[in-house]
């Protein structure tokens, strides 16, 4: 059974005159696989990530999404998180006054509790964070500061990967994680992501550019346009897109 099974998903922006954004999207992701989703701006890539996470600004009008065979769309946002869905945000949100450490611990224990697991002890937690943070070049000062408050673009993205490493999700959705990163930061972030690749964890890497895929090498590449996957292939598809651009798909779909 696929870890994630999206079948004929239709979704629109919530509200009376909400625009339809996803128009029959299907995708199967198995444990251990890394799928890249590429496509032009406005093709619905970020919407897909928000719908998987359960953002309330969208309404699913048709289709199904299951995680491990369970209906994902029926679950609350935090329930999905506890089931292992992690979204690395394109624009991580600032939460002033709440130290990153506090936030990480509250998140981890909330998830563990929902899964009926014991909470992590303070020393264990501190050790865990220290170890993972060091690999991502995140210092103590950043951990003491409010979540994402005063972080540079690169710091925010590294902090997202740190959260991912600590929460150990089953399904990682990386939304434009490369945006706003210089080449050095891109390397650090990619190494962080690659370290988390494992046979029982799947990833969906959403990106506009092929550049990220040199560092995080995908098993599958999908091209998305106008709310649908219009072509799928191996990693070589990304290179083809890099060379030719999205123009042909946009015309195809038109």
């Amino acid at each position: 059974m696929a870890l994630l099974d999206i079948d004929n998903l239709h979704a629109k922006i919530d509200g009376e005159h909400g625009k339809e954004i996803l128009k029959g999207l299907s995708l199967k992701v198995n444990p251990g696989e890394v799928h890249a989703i590429m496509g032009p701006n406005g093709s619905g890539k970020s919407t897909l990530s928000y719908i998987l996470a359960g953002k309330e600004d969208y309404e699913v009008t048709d289709g199904t999404v299951t995680l491990d065979g369970e209906d994902l769309l029926e679950m609350e946002i935090d329930e999905r998180a506890a089931k292992g869905v992690f979204l690395a945000f394109q624009y991580p949100v600032e939460v002033p006054g709440v130290a990153t450490m506090t936030f990480l611990r509250a998140s981890l224990n909330a998830q563990r509790k929902k899964r009926g697991e014991a909470e992590v002890s303070t020393p264990d937690f501190l050790r865990l964070v220290k170890d993972k943070a060091a690999h991502l070049g995140i210092n103590q000062d950043m951990l003491r500061r409010g979540v994402n408050v005063g972080f540079s673009g690169g710091e925010k993205k590294r902090a997202e990967i740190l959260q991912m490493a600590i929460l150990e999700p089953k399904l990682c959705v990386l939304d434009e994680t490369d945006s706003g990163l210089d080449i050095d930061a891109l390397k650090v972030v990619s190494e962080g992501v690659n370290a988390l690749r494992s046979p029982d964890r799947a990833m969906i890497v959403i990106t506009h550019y092929q550049r990220l895929l040199n560092h995080i090498v995908p098993d599958f590449v999908h091209v998305m346009n106008k709310g649908r996957i219009v072509r799928s292939g191996g990693k070589e598809l990304a290179l083809e897109l890099e060379a030719n651009g999205y123009a042909e798909y946009q015309q195809d779909a038109a």
Binding site: G54, K55, E56, R80, A81, F89, V93, S107, A110, Q111
Partner: peptide, 8 residues
Amino acid sequence: FYCRQRGL
């Protein structure tokens, strides 16, 4: 949304 995505 951000906090809830992390499980709270």
